[in-house]
């Protein structure tokens, strides 16, 4: 599925990165420790995290992610939104927890083939 379809289906609030919305989501990853995400998130994944600071955009770019969803009702810093927009990284927020969102994504078929 594409980023835009998942955003619409799951009711996320889109904050930045509209030009990346037609990317195909190839997996998912949950993590708030940046070294863990940097080492293990699969390319093309959606990243579910509670971190909202600017450095998450660097991690998303370096891991060639499809997008970032900030979970549990947290809000990203203004710098993070600006940078994600500049880099075309789709950035969303959701009141749901990473556990709940990962479950919904799994139900929709995200990450069931190939990804860790």
């Amino acid at each position: 599925m594409k980023v835009a379809e998942l955003c619409e289906t799951l009711g996320w609030k889109a904050l930045a990165g509209a030009r990346g919305l037609d990317r195909e989501v190839r997996g998912g990853y949950c993590g708030d420790l940046l070294s863990d995400v940097m080492a293990k998130a699969p390319p093309g994944c959606l990243w579910l995290t509670v971190q909202g600071h600017l450095n998450i955009v660097a991690v998303a770019l370096l891991r060639e992610m499809a997008g970032i969803v900030i979970t549990s009702g947290r809000e990203p810093d203004a710098d993070t939104v600006r940078r994600a927009e500049e880099e075309g990284i789709p950035l969303f927020t959701s009141p749901a927890s990473a556990f709940t969102l990962a479950g919904r994504l799994w139900e929709l078929g995200v990450g069931r083939t190939g990804a860790a």
Binding site: H53, L54, N55, A58, V59, L61, L62, D79
Partner: peptide, 9 residues
């Protein structure tokens, strides 16, 4: 902390 990663990009 915030700008770390720029060189890597």
């Amino acid at each position: 902390f915030l700008h770390a990663g720029e060189a890597s990009i």
